[in-house]
Design a binder for these strands. Sequence first.
DNA 1: AAGTCCCAAATTTTT
DNA 2: TTTGGGACTT
Length: 823
Amino acid sequence: MLVLAGAGTGKTRVLTTRIAHILATRRAYPSQILAVTFTNKAAREMKNRIGHLVGGEVEGMPWLGTFHSIGVKILRRHAELVGLKSNFTILDTDDQIRLIKQLIQAENLDDKRWPARSFANLMDGWKNKGLTPDQVPEGDARAFANGRGRELYKAYQARLTSLNAADFGDLLMHPIAIFRDHPDVLADYHRRFRYILVDEYQDTNVAQYLWLRLLAQSSDARRAVGQEGVNVCCVGDDDQSIYGWRGAEVDNILRFERDFPGATVIRLERNYRSTAHILGAAAGLISNNEDRLGKTLFTDLRDADDEKVSVSAGWDSEEEARAIGEEIEQLQRKGCKLNDMAILVRASFQMREFEDRFVTLGLNYRVIGGPRFYERQEIRDALAYFRCVCQPADDLAFERIVNTPKRGLGDAALQMLHTFARREQLPLLAAAGLIVQGDELKPRPRSALADVARNFTRWRDQLSNMRHTDLAEMILEESGYTEMWQADRSAEAPGRLENLKELVRSMDDYDSMPAFLEHIALVMDAEQNSETDAVSIMTLHSAKGLEFETVFLPGWEEGLFPHQRSLDEGGRSGLEEERRLAYVGLTRGKRRVKIWFVSNRRIHGMWQSTIPSRFLDELPEAHVDVLEPSTSYGGYGAGGMGGYGASRWDANAFSTSSYQTPGWRRAQASQGGETYRGGRGQGISYGEEGIQSGSRARAAATADKYISRDGVNAGDPSGARGGFAGRMEAPVEANRSRGTNQPPRKGAGLYSSARAGGPREIEGQLVAKSVQDEVSRFKIGDRAFHMKFGHGTVTTVEGNKVTVDFDKAGEKRVLDGFLETGN
DNA sequence: AAGTCCCAAATTTTT
DNA sequence: TTTGGGACTT
């Protein structure tokens, strides 16, 4: 059975109820049910909910977990079949990268030209596809390391085996190999499982699909125990597939009926979460996708008071953060809980602006996602110490901390140790204990290394004598690790010490140090406390599965959302994935969704002008309210915005004389010429023809649409195209052509006068990213005029980047193209 | 071996 | 603008 469950239709409930039903009707024992999820969080929640339904006792479901945790379980039982011992260690990404780096260097390859990171990603991709070294297509294998990609992959796997380690990919790859090569083992699992349930099926990758198919296939083993076949039930939503970039194959879900002939397909389309307006907006948007199975959400909840989805425009990202902050405070005054509000961003760099603003406002917020607790440097270091104690052969952990804190053990000494260890066929830690007895090393490193080796021996002896939490504390203390951070005067140091304490505290929940390590290798997340009332800030990706009364969606601009890179790399399907992401964002809202876009955003420290996202165009008008800038602006009171005054909007590119709803259309049209700069600003490679023509076509389409609809010539689309075609033109030309649809003089005049009167400096500057080989018309000492900063004197010129000491705004670095000769 | 400076690069993220 | 890594210097 395939359950296509739209957003908010009760997907998890279907799974949990089904399992509870199977148990209650005694169709199977808990141990005969295989239930897989993607995240530990989902697995945990499912366990809890089944527990509630069945009435306690959930421990009896040994096969409910993530793909990876079940993979580990299987692999531990049959490790020897793939050349591992059952106590193998699981590598994290850090270890993986360091190992690859060593291999690249061992192969005498230039590790700058072939970064370990890239290879890790590449190999990850192969493993996601279930490809062993021999199965990697020739072309793919050749693309890395001067054609030695395959050899490198092989060498990596060999090294893992000798280290008795597996990476995350292997947790799926090895079980697949075991099932394939050992029918007796597979038969065992066939006899065991009567029901297989899969959550978020649209997110499965090829490897996971193969894994499932092996387990689900019919077999003699099953028939022998009187089973006709296994019952497979997958739940998912093709419209919420947003992980294509990490190997998810939407095709798995689209193909389900072919994979399982005769399967029942059920669509859940009744939404219990959002208002009709939100659903209408989301439905309109997603209907622009071609690759989908097609579902239309509806709701029985109807209320005349429901708010439409709102779209607001802002001048720059600072203002966006400021205005959203105001809105949040306003809602709070009306009695809304901060816990019921969330800001969902496309990229994590957007978060900072909100954090900064909320700190000033004293508004509680929490960032969800980001670097996880167990991924922090200090935690990984501490864990490496613990790993060395529990698993003395864990060379990667040893390498990580052998000179942390600094002990005077540099490259030369470690090189010596490595050679020695290889010769003696010993793990590094054991080798360290021996090498210090000889005279290979210089006195200083020798005694340092001797200390390290002696310490680890001593700690290891305490493993069975002391409470593991006390031992952990002792290790961190005696190794000098705590001291290292205490001596560190950087801003993060106190937080890191706090994290270390928290780590030791959390060990208390486990019986022993090894048990703790086994757990955290797989569960890399730490529970967030939801006790304090706070606004959530997170990426759209991490918002999947959550819901909030009020959702803010900032940054709906071309290049950011849809993200330029998705478009460049993924083409149409990339765009469709971005659209699904937008769909996910909208459908997180229960009562209220507020979208924002701005015309200037700082990217990599440079201000860029942006145009509204095409997704805004795709929202049906019936469900959307476009907030006039004056409306949203006036709402905060004349003084509320720090005295900018309404004239500020006059400088705004999209609020020229006849700004009318639907505003974004006009905005897009009137900025048609801007597409040129936006595109170039994002650093598109013009060498790739497809991208260039794609963008060009869109720029034209947008402008044409506007013209045909309103009969007003708001811009010169041919000018926009000219801009694209003539890519080597100096930016100033682009700027001039833009002048036809936008009066920069007028804007500048009003703007600078407003600014002169205002109490606060305006940081924004219109700067597009540079094109390296261009040279400025300006030289040091020239007078220049900038539409946002006014007049000033040129102080430095680097290519087409000019630093100007503005009379009023101070020194700023801007692009030549945004300057005019001044006086 | 450790500290300093400069350059290139900068989505999304789980296990 | 920020960051990390690598080359360079102390």
